[in-house]
């Protein structure tokens, strides 16, 4: 690893900007994600900022099972993000489809549409679990060559 790619990798780990996208969740996971952004948990300590536009963001935080209606939009938002990009699935529904699995209107978890880096289970996933998951994503980047995004649905399992 050259010095340049080391610096770039360091900067990527220290400054992950997130965008939050609800793919059909019941709003519980969304509230927990918002709670983890509040001063109580203060994830700006890790350089994490919430951005409104996919063009600025590095990490796509999804909550909820992928409904048939939202699937195309989810893929479109993922494609609008600039490389390198990572996806975090928050909540049991986002990990596997949860209780909505095999419903007529639900495709499954987030990984049925786009590749996912981190799965955070829980119904809803607590803010501590979300922060733990994001930190695990960042530490997993340290070991990689140039923080390349996963080509396939490669999972970093954590407990909620």
């Amino acid at each position: 690893m050259t010095l340049m790619s080391k610096i770039v990798n360091w900067a990527r780990i220290k400054s992950p900007w997130i965008i939050h996208f609800n793919t059909g969740a019941c709003n519980a996971c969304d509230i927990e994600i918002i709670a983890s952004l509040t001063p109580t948990y203060d994830i700006e300590r890790f350089g994490i900022l919430l951005k409104g536009t996919p063009r600025h963001a590095d990490v796509l935080v999804c909550s909820g099972p992928v409904t048939r209606q939202i699937k195309d939009r989810l893929i479109r938002i993922y494609e609008q993000m600039a490389e390198p990009k990572f996806v975090v699935a928050v909540g049991t529904c986002a990990c596997s489809g949860g209780v909505f699995r095999k419903c007529y209107n639900v495709g499954g978890g987030i990984d049925s549409a786009i590749p996912v880096s981190v799965y955070i289970p829980g119904c809803p996933a607590s803010p501590k679990a979300i922060i733990d998951g994001v930190v695990k994503l960042l530490t997993s980047l340290e070991e990689k060559e140039a923080a390349a995004p996963p080509k396939t649905a490669e999972a970093v399992e954590i407990k909620g």
Partner: peptide
């Protein structure tokens, strides 16, 4: 701003890390 909101806030190198990260990102 973080201190006024009673939280810890970003580390000292934060703006530099943001800048380098954005320089190394894809240009859409």
């Amino acid at each position: 701003c973080a201190k006024l909101q009673n939280r810890v806030g970003p580390p000292w190198f934060q703006p530099l890390a943001d800048f380098i990260k954005l320089l190394a990102k894809e240009n859409v």
